[in-house]
């Protein structure tokens, strides 16, 4: 059954990619978050009430658990093994969601080909192309408008940013799909229109200084951490999609391709030209 094969292949890919990512993040990005949280707690102590309505509104400014929003009794993992463990779980779930989307796109691509095209090298090649589209759609395009932020930075309203992020990702993914699947010479016009749309709408920005409320020293440190974090998240995203292309391509060939081949040959459907 193809669906089961998709789930198992995505789970296997997710465990490998998610675990590798946790390691890369511990090395590249997590220390920057921890460093920023030291200053974030300082802000909670010095800022006047209501000064950071849309910012990182930490509980009562206590420095106990790793991360603690809103009410003091909210659970948050303790720094160290517990926090890394939950990050590992979240990384696996994140990689699982991306692997499912990658395999769905790859399966759709191969469903339009002759089944004899489903070779190991073709799986890796298509996985690489889909991973590149994933990087453009889920990292490059949304982050050009909404930069990576360390904790403590003030940003635009959360819901507006989530809507804009969804718009940017949807438009970029749609543009990649049109470039891959539509053969009309007008497709590049549609691709350009979709790519431009989120930037015509405009990403929600914070009003004023994103680091308002911090003292000069904390302000300068957080600014530097913010720049380092943008660079770190760029490397992390590149490594994520590189791993996803490699591991996903192998997993697709091992588990999903036989299912696609069997399902296609069971449907009398003549192979269509790309």
């Amino acid at each position: 059954m193809l669906f089961q094969k998709l789930i198992w292949a995505a789970l296997t890919t997710a465990v490998v990619v998610g675990s590798l990512q946790t390691g890369v993040q511990r090395w590249q990005a997590a220390p920057l978050i921890l460093a920023a949280e030291v200053y974030e707690d300082q802000k909670a102590e010095v800022s006047p009430p209501g000064a950071a309505l849309t910012a990182h509104a930490h509980g009562e400014g206590q420095a106990g658990p790793a991360h603690d929003h809103g009410a003091a009794e909210e659970w948050a993992p303790e720094n160290g093994v517990e926090r890394t463990g939950w990050t590992w779980v979240a990384n696996i779930l994140h990689a699982f969601s991306m692997a499912l989307l990658v395999f769905a796109a790859m399966g759709f691509w191969f469903s339009r080909q002759d089944t004899s095209c489903l070779t190991a090298s073709a799986s890796l090649r298509v996985a690489g192309l889909v991973a590149a589209a994933g990087w453009v759609s889920f990292h490059l395009w949304p982050t050009l408008g909404l930069h990576a932020e360390v904790p403590g930075m003030q940003a635009g309203p959360l819901q507006a940013r989530q809507i804009w992020w969804t718009l940017a990702v949807g438009c970029a993914a749609g543009a990649c799909a049109i470039a891959a699947f539509v053969r009309s010479p007008w497709r590049w016009l549609a691709v350009a229109a979709l790519l431009v749309l989120p930037y015509v709408v405009g990403a929600p920005k914070p009003r004023g200084d994103a680091l308002a409320g911090f003292g000069p020293e904390a302000h300068a440190s957080l600014e530097q951490l913010g720049h380092q974090f943008i660079l770190a998240t760029t490397w992390v995203a590149l490594s994520f999609w590189l791993c996803m292309g490699l591991v996903g391509g192998l997993a697709f060939q091992r588990w999903v391709a036989p299912g696609v081949r069997a399902a296609l040959s069971g449907t009398n459907t003549p192979p269509r030209a790309p």
Binding site: Q25, H67, E74, P77, T87, A232
Partner: peptide
């Protein structure tokens, strides 16, 4: 809180 670091690192609005 469980996925906090992953949300920041994967640049989701957090």
């Amino acid at each position: 809180n469980a996925a906090h670091d992953v949300r920041h690192i994967t640049v989701k609005p957090c």
